[in-house]
Design a protein around this nucleic acid. Sequence first.
DNA 1: ATGTCATCCAGCGGATGA
Length: 259
Amino acid sequence: MRLATWNVNSVKARLPRLLEWLAATGPDVLCLQELKVSAGQFPHEEITALGYEAAVHGDGRWNGVAVLSRVGLADVRTGFDGDPGFPDEAAQETRAVSATCGGLRVWSVYVPNGRTPDDPHYAYKLLWLARLTEALEREPAPLAVCGDFNVAPADDDVWDPAVFAGSTHVTKPERDALAALRERRGLHDIVPRPLKGDRPFTYWDYRAGMFHQNKGMRIDLVYATEPVPSRVTDAYVDREARKGKGPSDHAPIVVDIDL
DNA sequence: ATGTCATCCAGCGGATGA
């Protein structure tokens, strides 16, 4: 199985590149984040034409996630029990969707950004991760949780730790929340190889030539329970998809698994 | 690093979020 995840930063703006990438790369399952469309506006026709079914959770301008599959799409669930919402429980955002694809339970998640550690969105981010952890404990195996976690798990996962000192994505509470999520459900971090450079960054800010200088971050992650990690035959960040005209600011991760 | 991008609402630019 070829499993992939990609924050496309608007499925509408990225559609030509997404379709081209799907045809060229041929993932069996693709998790998408930051669709920025309602479920009704999702380009189902174009995706279906390439042989994929899509489970979509989106409500408009922000967020939005999907699971695309060409190996079956069953037991689709949008959101999860305990999703805290912001600014209150009732204002749930479209940040998680899950489905069973070819025997694998797959989640596509878009963790809240957090903005700054003193912002209410930061507390929301930590609560959201805690509630996600609880929801994942109720999920069957084998399980893969893929997406934009908006946390760099270690200092090596940012281009210069000094630049990020004290800012969101690298704080201890965020990293602890991520570690708890992994440990409580037995999830393993499937670290992809970079196609260039020594570290598998997945995100580079649009500004200041950050991609060109490889000043990136590893904030998109693929977590999976055994036996998936021990059956990975290859995993890489497709930095080619970050190049050229009109890219997302994130690159896809591609994982090949001999299930 | 704060150099861009996408979106919305209102209307061709500013606010918002990342």
